[in-house]
Design a binder for these strands. Structure first.
Ligand SMILES: [Mn+2]
Ligand SMILES: [Mn+2]
Ligand SMILES: [Zn+2]
Ligand SMILES: [Zn+2]
Lengths: 155, 155
DNA sequence: CTTGTTAATGAGAATTATTCTCATTAAAAA
DNA sequence: TTTTTAATGAGAATAATTCTCATTAACAAG
């Protein structure tokens, strides 16, 4: 098993390659971390993790790469209400496409699948209609529900 | 026409009062500005405007009040991708409830009504189901579509 | 209308997430 | 292996937001 076939790295590699970007050590570390954890990490959390598995990468490098990875579609960036950006791996298929329930109190983020209740279909239809009505090219969307998770409801 | 009945100030006043907050000059100026403009303003834009109509209010006061007004539900805060928060007036009725199309290039924000395509009903149903499934108390949501406005599609 | 209480203000310092700079390093094409 | 140049990392710079604290003004009570 060569280096590149592990962990779907070749997939990353192809995508990076297509954008004329090199598969560098910190870049790969970031992708590995986001792939492994299912979490929604901040840049700083990612930086801390990277420093463990790779020789220490600069925080600026982490930011620079996250920006790149978001741009080429390997990573998804979003905002959970507190003021630091969160990042999570973007999966190949849109099987994994999902939205979020975000607890205002403890900042827990729950992924929920958009395949239930025909949410996916509804959104697609909505995008088509909005697109036409406003002559607006929709590229992606952000659907979050804010409130209190079950733990925080009590306290 | 007394001072308080103008511009629905009494509505603000009641809400503030219920939360034991005073209707101060800068507080009122912020509400007036957000009411008048239909726009989605940043704290700094609001601060600039306030300084025109009221005697100059401190930027910190603007931030402090925006936070309060969001908390008690008179103002709606959201994030348009660039990294400064945007604020808009929250209307009484949920007639005015709406979502956004946000241009990634020029940051134009288009309000669209959620009453078309039964979006409102769909969301309500979705909230109910998610709420039950995850034992999560949903308080509000944020639905944004990102892409390119018609002006930016060309260039 | 005064007065007293205390929430609110405003100037600026402090904090914090993110971006920028630039000399150095290392992917990967040749 | 050599060469080219994208990428790195340390730290400085920036920018949005929050904090501090002495001063002011909203408004309830008299
Ligand atoms: Mn997620
Ligand atoms: Mn709006
Ligand atoms: Zn919670
Ligand atoms: Zn645009």
């Amino acid at each position: 098993m060569d280096n590149l076939s592990a962990k779907g790295i070749s997939w990353y590699y192809d995508r990076l390659n297509r954008h004329c970007c090199r598969l560098t050590k910190p870049r790969r570390a970031i992708l590995d971390i986001l792939e492994d954890t299912g979490e929604h990490l901040s840049a700083e959390q990612i930086h801390r993790q990277v420093s463990k598995i790779s020789t220490n990468a600069g925080l600026s490098t982490v930011y620079r790469n996250l920006e790149l990875l978001v741009r080429i579609g390997l990573v998804w960036k979003f905002d959970a209400g507190d003021k630091k950006a969160r990042y999570e791996i973007a999966k190949r298929t849109d099987e994994n496409h999902h939205h979020h329930l975000i607890c205002k109190k403890c900042n827990t983020i729950i992924d929920y699948s958009a395949s239930v209740d025909n949410e996916k279909d509804f959104i697609k239809m909505r995008e088509k209609n909005l697109s036409r009505k406003y002559n607006f090219k929709i590229e992606n969307h952000c659907i979050d529900f804010f409130g209190l998770c079950y733990k925080c409801r009590k306290s």
